[in-house]
């Protein structure tokens, strides 16, 4: 009787979770399977792919084949991966430095002001990303908003273009992703017991020591979450390199996009996608490892 009951319960559990499994299957497993499949096929120079097994596309990430069919190390894609990692990291660091004071300020306001300020932080998400990034094109372009204002104030005569370089991309990325840093840090500051801050100052810690020895370590979960939330989407970002980098400086996101678009090399695009996924997974696994080690230490 009880085992029948248990079985029934088991079926019910599976049934209850079914919608989640279905979503996972169609939104994650199948698309990823297609990517893996395409990456292992031969690319068709006329677009799409030919169902013929080949690992050439993975090889292409690091090597080129010269006229004599010799493999030669080719750093151009590795450069793009490196630049992507570096710009994403710098973006995350700048976001952290800017977001922490903002989050701290919001967390110390009254409940109604908090709600308003958090709403303002999230407001940009309601506007299309393209519009928001394009706004920076208008601000930074030759005779754009920034230059007009500065020259009107007599501060500059003739500015070099601010657009189409790493700096412009960085500005765009920081702008786009900073809310993702503010929110988790806000959540951890909000939870911070202010008596600990008092305890620190009671024990002769000045503001600097209180911040670096008490507040920051205790906000670490929020800071780590914020860095991941900013760093990971930055790795795959497309719009900033396209609009603000002017297509001159590639990042992984628009490199991949190009493979499926103008370059018509689906297999290569798919293998680059998997490379990006691998990089993201490595960072997430490192973080998970660290978290579980910390948990073990505490027990």
């Amino acid at each position: 009787m009880s085992s029948v009951h248990k079985m029934k319960e088991g079926y019910l559990n599976i049934l209850g979770l079914a919608p989640a499994y279905v979503v996972m299957l169609f939104m994650m497993v199948i698309p990823l399977g297609i990517i893996v499949y395409v990456s292992m096929m031969t690319s068709d120079p006329y677009g799409g792919f030919i169902s013929e097994f080949s690992l050439d596309s993975f090889q292409q990430i690091l090597f080129v084949t010269d006229w004599d069919d010799n493999l030669q190390l080719d750093l151009q894609y590795l450069n793009i991966i490196g630049r992507t990692l570096l710009l994403s990291l710098i973006t995350a660091i700048i976001c952290l430095c800017l977001a922490f004071p903002v989050a701290f300020y919001i967390a110390r306001q009254s409940a109604s002001r908090k709600a308003l300020l958090l709403f303002l932080v999230m407001l940009p998400f309601w506007i299309s990303m393209i519009v928001r990034v394009y706004a920076w094109v208008l601000i930074l372009s030759d005779n754009g908003v920034l230059e007009s204002v500065l020259s009107f104030l007599g501060l500059v005569d003739d500015m070099d273009s601010l657009l189409y370089n790493n700096g412009a991309m960085l500005v765009g990325m920081v702008y786009s992703y900073i809310p993702l840093m503010i929110l988790p840090i806000y959540a951890s500051i909000e939870k911070l017991d202010l008596r600990l801050v008092e305890a620190a100052s009671d024990l002769y810690a000045n503001r600097f020591n209180t911040l670096f020895r008490i507040v920051l370590p205790l906000c670490k979960p929020g800071i780590v979450a914020g860095i991941i939330l900013v760093f990971v989407p930055c790795l795959g970002t497309v719009l900033e390199p396209m609009l603000l980098g002017g297509g001159k400086t590639m990042l992984m996101g628009n490199l991949i996009q190009n493979q499926f678009g103008v370059a018509r090399n689906w297999s290569f695009g798919a293998s680059l996608t998997l490379a990006l996924l691998a990089i993201v997974m490595i960072f997430l696994m490192l973080q998970a490892l660290r978290a579980s080690r910390l948990k073990q230490q505490e027990q």
Binding site: R195, E198, D202, L203
Partner: peptide, 20 residues
């Protein structure tokens, strides 16, 4: 004088030990 410059120490009601 700010708290960190006073030679007095406090035992807090809920102890306020640094959890980390």
């Amino acid at each position: 004088l700010p708290a960190h410059k006073r030679r007095v120490n406090t035992v807090f009601q809920n102890y306020a030990l640094f959890p980390h």
